[in-house]
Design a protein around this nucleic acid. Structure first.
Length: 668
RNA sequence: GGGUUCAUAGUUCAGCAUGGAUAGAAUGACUGCCUGCGGAGCAGCUGGUCGAGGGUUCAAAUCCCUCUGGACCCGCCA
């Protein structure tokens, strides 16, 4: 990408320090020094710990060494000398840090040179990974028997941001949504429809007149209520068993009915995901994994390699088990020959890694909000007509298994134990290096949210959500609450706008706010969702970022009217005479760190890195906005350069906002 | 009982991977700033024994150990 100034500076410092090491007859492999940014601005732009590391080897005090390096060695450093003075000041500070300060005047000149060479800041891919590696991400994967609740949103949004980050970092990525359409949870609602007296007529008619989505209906009315019935109706549990058995035959009447229901729920779930600007490439259905017989293949491999064993004695007698030293024994095949939940996951994981044959075709399923096509797996073309269309896609262009470099699964941390087992097993097949799972802690509900839902809190001040018990806040509901709230705000601020415009703006504000909220926390931390506090529009929120963008955009429009853009072409070379303030310099420096931050987010698989960068960018911009006026500035040359900074900032803001999924609005 | 993980300002959280200087935001409270480039903002002020104790180190919020407290996992459920 462009704007390598900061990376060049770091590189320069690094090379000069290697010269220092050479002076002492040492190399980087012996003294692995670090170049970092000091927390305190007074200490400069970069600092190194090299003196502390040398102290031991040279048996001198760090400050002595620092003194010597700064006053004797560095002045002769060719790396520092031959560059056009980007590094201005090198000093040492007790107890032994060497600090480097960027020469702001030179830096600013370099910056404007790059900006005017590349006025549109188009992403230049040549510096990105140009290998043809392919990354698979699996996320969302909600059971198709209910609507998404806010806990599921964490999965979907983190996964989608990760997709966007990796895409922006130049990787080829495919997104998979796994649909468990043959498990107990789906069987529950089939029991509800068929045997618990809930009306099936609703299946045939549209719910739209009552404004109820089908996924909400299945979750709230059928799933929760059916589960509550099991206690008093033991016959229903027997029915459920029968249904599960019938689902094994894909041509049974139960299977047909289930496919209809699953499809209706799934379509509504996808609507929620698409509303939040998530997108997918492929839907994988568990029922098809089962039919593919991939299990048979992987089972015989595991058995032949003696990774799993048939147990003759003990509590697991009659079962095929995997014996983990760490995690204990895990049953894969029950004594009645059925597979456990964990076992069913193995063929899917192995398939994703391209270890086995690929039994699937891909069939068009839907066009998504971003105009991309969503496909679904298929084995026999005529079998799944209820799922929709029939136009296929080339197998290789969907997933070329030979190019896969990483398979990332985003899962609730409660599944981590099983994922550890999976990695162990994959390790024995020598394919664990590509398999990564990203665990996140669940979203729980605050007491006040529970109160407003009318749920008794059981003496706790927060509670885990449960789809089965009906303890949750639906994603659609959270979105519409926030949308109403921002609508009021938007209308107050923009009384002249039409209802249509207000609706559009408040919708984008609410989507952005929710997306930002779910990625700004560390994945290892539980999120307590509070219906009021979590959906704020001030402070560290997407709205703050959008507001900064909107203000900036407004100024830019006026700049264009005032003709600043034409003047940019006539920039003089004597920028040196301009005095840029810290609000300008700090902003420019931050702009130049974009590449470093994006790489970090991509390498660490951590979307939060980018959200922090973006928030900081918006903060620095707001500061610039207050302190560095453009239209009011008398010095025309300064104003023109400020307009350029504004221009660059808007570009970077837009870029980062799009990665996180915050809509850049020109009015709000 | 075994294991994983978390504990940082009144509150919600960054920082910990790869140890480094005066521990950062946001929010709340309080105080300023709109005939202006849009106040969903800016500036200021208040607020911390980084859960406790020990260890390693020139240096620990960060690494190691113990303890306390919370969450989660440990089924021929999914």
């Amino acid at each position: 990408m462009i704007w390598m100034i900061v990376e060049n500076v770091i590189d320069e410092i690094s090379r000069s320090l290697e010269e220092v090491l050479a002076f002492y007859n040492l190399t980087k492999s012996e003294v692995n020094f670090d170049i970092s940014e000091p927390h305190v601005k007074d200490f400069g732009d970069f600092s190194t710990n090299i003196c502390f590391l040398l102290a031991k080897k040279l048996r001198m005090s760090p400050s002595e060494i620092a003194d010597h390096i700064v006053n004797t060695i560095l002045p002769t450093s060719s790396a520092l000398m031959n560059k056009n003075g980007l590094i201005d000041l090198v000093s040492f500070v007790n107890p032994g840090f060497i600090n480097f300060r960027i020469n702001n005047k030179v830096f600013v000149v370099e910056f404007f040179k790059e900006v005017s060479n590349n006025p549109k800041f188009k992403t230049d891919d040549k510096n990105l990974s140009n290998s043809n590696e392919l990354i698979l991400i699996e996320h969302t994967s909600v059971n198709p028997n209910k609507a998404l609740h806010v806990g599921h949103l964490r999965n979907a949004i983190v996964g989608d941001c990760l997709y966007r980050i990796l895409r922006t970092a130049g990787k080829d990525v495919r997104v998979i949504n796994y649909i468990d359409d043959s498990g107990v949870q789906v069987a529950d609602i089939i029991v509800g429809f068929k045997h618990a007296g809930f009306s099936t007529s609703i299946v045939d008619q549209e719910l739209s007149k009552e404004k109820t989505k089908f996924d909400h209906y299945c979750g709230n009315e059928i799933y929760v209520k059916t589960n509550a019935l099991y206690k008093s109706r033991p016959d229903l549990e027997i029915k459920r068993k029968t249904i599960l058995k019938e689902l094994e035959n894909p041509e049974s009447e139960t299977s047909l009915f289930t496919r209809t229901i699953v499809d209706r729920v799934l379509k509504d779930q996808l609507k929620t995901c698409w509303n939040l600007r998530c997108r997918y490439d492929l839907l994988c259905f568990e029922s098809q994994i089962v039919q593919s017989n991939l299990w048979t293949d992987i089972f015989s491999i595991l058995r032949d390699k003696e990774i799993i064993y048939f147990e003759n004695v003990g509590k697991n007698a009659g079962c095929w088990v995997y014996k983990s030293g760490k995690e204990g024994d895990k049953v894969l095949v029950r004594s009645d020959l059925t597979l456990t939940y964990f076992a069913k996951d193995i063929p899917f994981a192995v398939w994703k890694l391209g270890y086995l044959r690929n039994p699937f075709d891909y069939i068009f399923y839907a066009t998504q909000w971003d105009a991309s096509n969503l496909y679904r797996t298929n084995i026999t073309k005529n079998l799944y007509e209820t799922f929709g269309g029939s136009s296929g896609v080339e197998k290789e262009s969907m997933i070329d298994f030979s190019r896969i470099s990483k398979v990332i699964t985003i899962i609730d941390s409660r599944q981590e134990r099983l994922q550890n087992l999976m990695v162990e097993i994959l390790g024995k097949l020598r394919m664990d290096s590509k398999y990564k799972y990203l665990g996140y802690e669940p979203v729980i509900l605050s007491q006040s949210s529970l109160d407003s839902l009318g749920i008794s809190g059981e003496d706790k001040n927060s509670l885990h959500m449960s789809g089965r018990k009906g303890i949750y806040i639906e994603a659609d509901m959270a979105l519409s609450i926030l949308e109403e709230r921002s609508k009021v705000e938007t209308r107050n601020r923009n009384p002249e706008l039409s209802e249509e415009e207000i609706s559009y703006i408040s919708r984008e504000i609410s989507i952005s706010a929710i997306r930002y909220f779910f990625i700004k926390f560390d994945l290892g931390k539980m999120i307590t969702f509070d219906i009021n506090e979590s959906l704020s529009l001030e402070g560290d929120t997407a709205s703050y970022i959008q507001y900064a963008y909107a203000r900036g955009k407004r100024v830019e429009d006026k700049n264009i009217e005032a003709g600043f853009l034409e003047k940019q072409n006539k920039l003089e070379n004597n920028i040196e005479i301009l005095n840029f303030s810290s609000s300008e310099i700090d902003l420019i420096k931050h702009l130049c760190k974009y590449d470093i931050e994006l790489k970090q987010a991509a390498n660490n698989i951590d979307p939060k890195v980018l959200s922090k960068y973006l928030f900081q960018l918006a903060t620095l911009f707001n500061n610039f906005y207050e302190k560095s006026p453009i239209l009011k500035e008398k010095n025309e040359m300064l104003a023109t350069h400020r307009a350029l900074i504004l221009n660059s900032t808007l570009e970077k803001l837009e870029l980062c906002m799009n990665i996180i999924g915050i809509t850049p609005l020109t009015r709000m």
